[in-house]
Design a protein around this nucleic acid. Structure first.
Lengths: 342, 342
DNA sequence: GGCCAATTTGGTAGCGCTACCATCCCGGTT
DNA sequence: AACCGGGATGGTAGCGCTACCAAATTGGCC
């Protein structure tokens, strides 16, 4: 006689228990749960009753193994604490909370190699979809994404050559718009201050440079950057460096809002008038930008919406109707405020 | 003749392929990967060679099914965008990045019911450990945690009755320390401004109240709270409300740093002198607090360290040596700065 | 030299679920 | 009345891995 295995801890009910109780075959229970329309009204009710009574919950691991596909979205972002990505992730979570899909979140720490490593960890799980930040994957990562056999959405940026789908906006255009705004406002010695300088920051810088060159105002000494991770305190330091380098500086376009806030605080501390003596423009438009005194002009980006849209596109692709528009540009919005109103 | 099934997409190599190539049994490969010390040096090398050559990666789903235990940490936090929890989560991710454990992150949106729901989704995965924020689980959630059959760490707070383990600090003491500091600095009409008012905020408020009562300064009209989610702009509004209610207000202890920043900006805008006319103390000590002008006094909390410690404790428990100290208080540190130096 | 314990290796039998195919039943045709 | 097609249901055979136990090998000791 074979004694029942009791390896499993709490002895949770299995699909066989439900089938027995409902007086049907196990496969019918499986179908009733996944494709209810293929099971008769009556059996469906019986099965549901058995499920409720036993408190049956399908084992996602067994499901994944048998169907060679896990109900998991793999999500890769460069940072968990950067508010920008936190918002994207929040959008993804909110969009997926009512679905059967779980989320596997990975933190690449802005490293292409780490991204590769994580992709190698994610792939064996056969995720239902992959969402990755940025468009600058290493060749290896790109190959992993192409061979993942599931919908892939690159988020935060748009570009010419999607692995599969894209949702984002043009950082170059954003940087250009911010700079043009400062030029129009009458500033001339406009600096660029940037920390971290990941690919997106690089493109904002390129937008800045393009605008400055068109206006005949570009001067390499106006650019102050560092690979060090961004923070408010770093913004303050970089601004002091920039000012020491170019005392005639009359405005700064900052890489992001943290840097901009650091600049603002340093101006307060040094009694520099904003926007008269120094104009400030940030990037991303965090909530605090409109509250700051003076309020800070910033390029509003639609992070939460990017997350939601990415999920919507992936879900559509999973359901078989791939969106006709594979690259979605959600744009940005320049919020003009006191800090750049000369 | 049985034709080979080809359900699986890319036909990734399985443990059987590795075993065949290395000329050993499948189970030996499994052991070589999980408990190398139990396999002879020679076979280990052969197996490793086969693994490398084939690019074999174990299927986590099959593994979880066979061993009735997934290499997953379930993590539940009330918010993904609140910097405080983002830091905890970052600590967790960093501590787990070199381990085989994956992370299943859930966002409870500060809702006990949502926490229950997520726990019900997590439990069937048989996670290796669970990390949950806070100590105020619903009875149902508590039961789910107790029956999870894995180490459980409650983080962010300490309390008398851990489900299993705890890492955090006393929000009540933090609130008290902040308030006592303001009293010592000479402030008398000290307000409390709080948004969201989750259980941790409630306890900070209790600490505030205790300190005020001891000093004979408590007045319910000094307390301004709202269940609305916290933000810098909300801080500004609440401060205006508080000031309208109590024009003689001479200091505020804020629920968190976002609120404190909103207060500071409103003071700038209304030309209220900080710290002469109004003293400000925040909570958490975000990076920007020391950069703000004037710099803002805040209660520094060790969020990142909480995440790391929680993982360390869970890992130890998984390895069989449960820490002797089940409740770890990481404390806090009052950072005295310009905003409260009368 | 023989015996026993410890160590190393392997075979078998599932873990809980679903893909694939077979079966059954029904009403509509010829 | 025999036949057929289509929808509902079920049986079988794994998915890739590991727990359990058995077998083989080694080494130490009397």
């Amino acid at each position: 006689m074979i004694k029942p295995r009791s390896r499993r801890g709490g002895g949770r009910p299995t699909i066989a228990d439900v089938a027995r109780k409902a007086g049907v075959g196990a496969i019918t229970v499986s179908r009733a749960l996944r494709e209810p329309e293929r099971v008769s009204e009556e059996l469906r009710r019986q099965i549901q009753a058995a499920v409720d009574e036993l408190g049956y919950v399908p084992d996602p691991n067994a499901r994944a193994l048998a169907s060679a596909r896990a109900e998991v979205f793999g999500v890769l972002v460069p940072s968990l604490t950067n508010n920008v990505f936190a918002e994207v992730v929040r959008g993804i979570y909110d969009s997926l909370s009512d679905s059967p899909f779980r989320i596997q979140l990975g933190n690449t720490h802005y490293s292409g190699l780490e991204e590769e490593r994580l992709l190698q960890v994610f792939a064996p799980q056969r995720p239902a979809a992959l969402i990755v930040a940025g468009i600058d994957q290493t060749p290896t990562s790109r190959k992993l994404l192409e061979n993942a056999g599931c919908p892939v959405v690159q988020v935060m940026e748009t570009g010419p050559d999607p692995v599969d789908m894209m949702v984002g906006f043009s950082h170059l255009d954003g940087g250009r718009a911010a700079t043009e705004h400062l030029i129009e406002a009458g500033y001339r010695r406009i600096g660029f201050i940037g920390a971290r300088m990941d690919p997106r920051s690089q493109r904002r810088l390129a937008g800045y440079r393009a605008a400055m060159e068109v206006a005949g105002l570009f001067d390499p000494r106006l650019v102050t950057t560092t690979p060090v991770p961004s923070s408010v305190s770093l913004g303050r330091e970089l601004f002091r460096d920039a000012l020491a380098k170019v005392p005639t500086l009359d405005a700064v376009f900052c890489n992001n809002d943290d840097i901009a806030l650091g600049v603002l605080f340093e101006c307060h501390r040094a009694s520099i008038d904003v926007p008269k003596t120094i104009g400030i423009v940030g990037f991303n438009d965090l909530d605090m930008m409109q509250v700051a005194f003076p309020s800070i002009t910033s390029v509003r980006t639609h992070r939460y919406e990017i997350g939601r849209r990415a999920v919507a596109m992936a879900l559509a692709a999973i359901a078989g109707n791939r969106p006709e528009q594979r690259v979605v540009d959600l744009g940005f919005e320049l919020k003009r405020r006191e800090s750049s109103a000369r």
